[in-house]
Amino acid sequence: MIVLEGVSKRYENQDALKDVSLRIEKGEMAFVTGPSGAGKTTLFKLLYLAEAPDEGLISIAGFNTASLDDSTIPMLRRNIGVVFQDFKLLNNNTVFDNIALALRIRRVMEREIKEKVTAVLKLVGLRHKADAYPLTLSGGEQQRITIARAIVGEPTVMLADEPTGNLDIENEEGIMKIFKLINNKGTTILIASHNRRLFDNTGRRVFYLDGGQLVKAEVR
């Protein structure tokens, strides 16, 4: 479902990723970890096509990213739900509209949007916050909205970059529960985090990046 073969990316003569190859199976939930600057965020940017690799092949959700152009990139992105470290919410829009945006982009009918958004808000435990604005919410709540927006379009792959970065343990556990729930429904999930609590003793595969290179892959 997610395949990287010999992927490299350089920024101004510095290797951000160097010859990285990995494979994540359909329906799997896996983790990418490593110290700051290891290449986790670069890897994610390549996966959701914010950047293009200098070398190597990337295949995700059935798309070979090298063969995509401006007209097909949106199609791929609709198949990937992304949870951003910095949330990337529209602060002028309500919680409902932030989540609904992912469906409006897909030209879903308003009635269906209402049903689906209400359902995901219930899933992330924020049904009562539908009319609130993001800046009035806590970090944990904003992160859950980001997750709700990522899953409302029922993507086949979900990418989460440091989803619990600034959260306390209670919020962290809540968010991991949501990920497990989504994964149980068949969504492939790749989470980037340097927080060991998220993947220790989970029985999930963990990929270790260091200096842009994949140094280890093991089941924890």
Binding site: P74, M75, L76, R77, R78, F84, K88, L101, R149
Partner: peptide
């Protein structure tokens, strides 16, 4: 906002 639309798959 436009950057977010693009990342969410807006045409």
């Amino acid at each position: 906002e436009i950057e977010i639309y693009k990342l969410l798959g807006a045409t």
